[in-house]
Design a protein around this nucleic acid. Structure first.
Lengths: 267, 267
DNA sequence: CGCTGTGTTGAATGCCGTCAACGTCGGTGG
DNA sequence: CCACCGACGTTGACGGCATTCAACACAGCG
């Protein structure tokens, strides 16, 4: 604190660099087929729409726009005017927030069947975060003007949407509690358990996060650095709790990892 | 990590003690006049209801229950079945979350005119946090069954409520970002600025948080300890940025404090 | 085969939590 | 009025843990 201005936020340059990289990747936004043939079965599989008749589904889809998004494409951008809301049909989406200093945080991952970008439901004019395809994705989008129609036309749609928001608020608050009270080790363990619970895929020797995820991503979920994440994952691999890999994490001993998460581990 | 079980969370005993104290204070719950005379003017001053006619206001109030809550009384409790929602007519409410290990976090403060305890809007069966009166308070409450009536009967009520939730989600996410990227000093500065912005009262020599707030409360808002808060407030007092006091904080140099919050301070 | 993105690991610094002790204020009861 | 007590606040000393800095390893790709 002896300089005229304090040095920029720790690691600022690294974050800036990453941000630029991702921005360049994002230039590929909306590269894909803008009006893919819509299949009723895609929709009928979504719980919210399960109760609808074929005819009703057609009406719901008539106002929707389907698009494919390549991996790392940006579906919408933080601060951008929010004109549409989305429903993820397939893939995984990473929701990223960037602070004014350039620090990035992964707010959450969206799984298939979930609504996202529903700024309209909260009376917001802009998206509070960016949505990036973690893998190739397919999503429906509606203009905000369709919100009222869906709410009145699809029984349970409004309730489902507001419950989604409520769940996210609650999860975010729990994250605040975790960051206030837990050690880094526990936070990372909890984060990984949440990932495999919500987006896990069974493999031969455990449960694996079924989209590519880097150490840096995990660090941005838990408020630490990729170094710390790497160190801990290595240590856990030695203990047989997880197995690492390039952009890959496999939990081989979920129970053991849970003990770590709750700080009850022996040793 | 050499013991059989790791030591309990750092400072656990202190938190437990505090929790017990507050629980005892909370035993005074609902001590006050259960059906205070309702005054239309109380309601007409609330923005959401401003557009209503006197007759409509009477209808809104007919389903409501007004109560006074003494300082430190608990209006509802975390985990409790959520049967009502509330509107704060006067006073200030502290919303507190407690983790399973007993660690407490102040989720937010509620100001007059704001809805709180609106679990029903998010399809939640239980309250995710506890609400404690920071000063003597007056609040309206409705049974959950009145939610639909208010939504259909009061223009803008639903939109206002969902916007409130959206704002809180956004604020909570910003808090996650702050805890991920900012130093303790900046977080505390931001928290105090937010307090005086949202609940400030002008005094002779600055802006003061207009409800009693302890160092411990500030620590629970920012995820630190009361020691660190005390140290920093003392340092800031020496620099002329704030003035402290028993359960009191006065900002005397908001601009200077903002420089601290953004880590742009000279020196 | 270089380049870029990703991951690993060692060493050192420093922030901030922890422990501890003391000071101060306000209320309460003798 | 005064002594006592609990709640709240302050300050110093110490040390652990995570960040930071640095260097290297490895995979994929053009």
């Amino acid at each position: 604190m002896n300089e005229q201005y304090r040095a920029p936020a720790p690691g600022y340059l690294r974050y800036l660099k990453l941000r630029i990289e991702r921005a360049e990747q994002a230039a590929r936004k909306h590269e894909a087929m803008p009006h893919q043939a819509l299949d009723r079965s895609l929709i009928a599989a979504i719980p919210v729409f399960a109760s609808l008749s074929g005819e009703e589904i057609d009406r719901v889809l008539s106002g929707a726009h389907s698009a494919r998004y390549a991996k790392d494409a940006e579906i919408f951008s933080q601060g951008e005017e929010a004109g549409h809301f989305f429903l993820l049909l397939d893939g995984h989406i990473r929701v990223v927030q960037t602070s004014s200093e350039g620090h990035q945080v992964v707010a959450r991952y969206i799984n298939r069947g979930e609504l996202f970008g529903i700024a309209v439901a909260m009376g917001r004019g802009t998206y509070p975060a960016s949505a990036v395809a973690a893998v190739d994705c397919v999503a429906l989008s509606w203009p905000n003007s369709a919100w009222a129609d869906l709410q009145s036309g699809v029984p349970g749609f409004g309730a489902n949407a507001y419950q989604t928001i409520g769940t996210r608020l609650h999860e975010t608050q729990e994250r605040v509690m975790a960051m206030s009270s837990e050690q880094v080790e526990q936070r990372i363990a909890h984060a990984i358990l949440r990932l495999v619970t919500q987006s896990g895929r069974k493999t031969g020797d455990g449960i694996e996060v079924d989209f590519p995820i880097t150490r840096q991503d995990i660090a941005e979920m838990t408020g630490t650095t990729l170094h710390t994440v790497s160190r801990l994952l290595s240590a856990w691999e030695d203990e047989g709790l997880v197995r690492g890999g390039r952009q890959k994490v496999t939990v081989t001993d979920a129970h053991g990892l849970m003990l770590v998460a709750e700080n009850r581990r022996k040793r």
